[in-house]
Simulated scan of single mutants.
Amino acid sequence: MSYDDGHGYGSREPGGRPDDAYSTLGGTRQTRTRLPDSEPGPPYGRRPVRGTRSLVTVVGVVVLLIGAIAFANRGSGDGAADKATGGSGTKSDSAASAPTAPTGTDPVTGKTGTIASGFAHDAQGAQSAAANYTVALGSDQMFDAKGRREITRAVYVPAVAAARLTDLDKVYTGEGFLASIGLKPDGTAPEGLTFISRSNPVGSKVEGYSGAEATVSVWYSALFGLAGEGSKNPVAEGWYTTTYTLSWSGGDWKVQDFTQKDGPTPVGRDQSASTAQEMADAVETFGGFTYAR
Rank of each mutant, 00 (worst) to 15 (best):
residue 72 A to W: 10
residue 74 R to T: 11
residue 74 R to D: 07
residue 74 R to H: 08
residue 75 G to Y: 03
residue 75 G to S: 15
residue 75 G to E: 09
residue 75 G to W: 01
residue 76 S to I: 05
residue 76 S to Y: 02
residue 76 S to H: 04
residue 77 G to I: 01
residue 77 G to D: 09
residue 78 D to L: 03
residue 78 D to G: 04
residue 78 D to N: 14
residue 78 D to C: 02
residue 78 D to H: 06
residue 80 A to R: 10
residue 80 A to W: 11
residue 80 A to T: 13
residue 81 A to L: 14
residue 81 A to R: 07
residue 81 A to Q: 07
residue 81 A to N: 10
residue 82 D to I: 01
residue 83 K to P: 04
residue 83 K to F: 07
residue 84 A to H: 14
residue 84 A to F: 10
residue 84 A to V: 15
residue 84 A to T: 14
residue 84 A to L: 15
residue 85 T to H: 13
residue 85 T to N: 15
residue 85 T to R: 03
residue 86 G to N: 09
residue 86 G to K: 11
residue 86 G to T: 13
residue 87 G to S: 04
residue 87 G to C: 12
residue 87 G to T: 11
residue 88 S to F: 00
residue 88 S to M: 14
residue 88 S to V: 13
residue 88 S to N: 11
residue 89 G to N: 02
residue 91 K to D: 15
residue 91 K to C: 08
residue 91 K to M: 10
residue 92 S to Q: 13
residue 92 S to N: 11
residue 92 S to L: 14
residue 93 D to L: 13
residue 93 D to K: 09
residue 94 S to M: 08
residue 94 S to C: 07
residue 94 S to L: 07
residue 95 A to K: 12
residue 95 A to E: 13
residue 97 S to P: 01
residue 97 S to F: 12
residue 97 S to D: 10
residue 98 A to V: 04
residue 99 P to S: 10
residue 99 P to C: 06
residue 99 P to I: 08
residue 99 P to T: 08
residue 99 P to D: 12
residue 99 P to Q: 09
residue 100 T to C: 06
residue 100 T to N: 10
residue 101 A to T: 11
residue 101 A to W: 09
residue 101 A to F: 14
residue 101 A to V: 12
residue 101 A to N: 13
residue 104 G to F: 01
residue 104 G to N: 05
residue 105 T to S: 09
residue 105 T to M: 04
residue 106 D to Y: 02
residue 106 D to V: 06
residue 107 P to E: 07
residue 107 P to K: 02
residue 108 V to T: 10
residue 108 V to F: 07
residue 108 V to H: 04
residue 110 G to S: 11
residue 110 G to M: 04
residue 111 K to T: 04
residue 111 K to L: 02
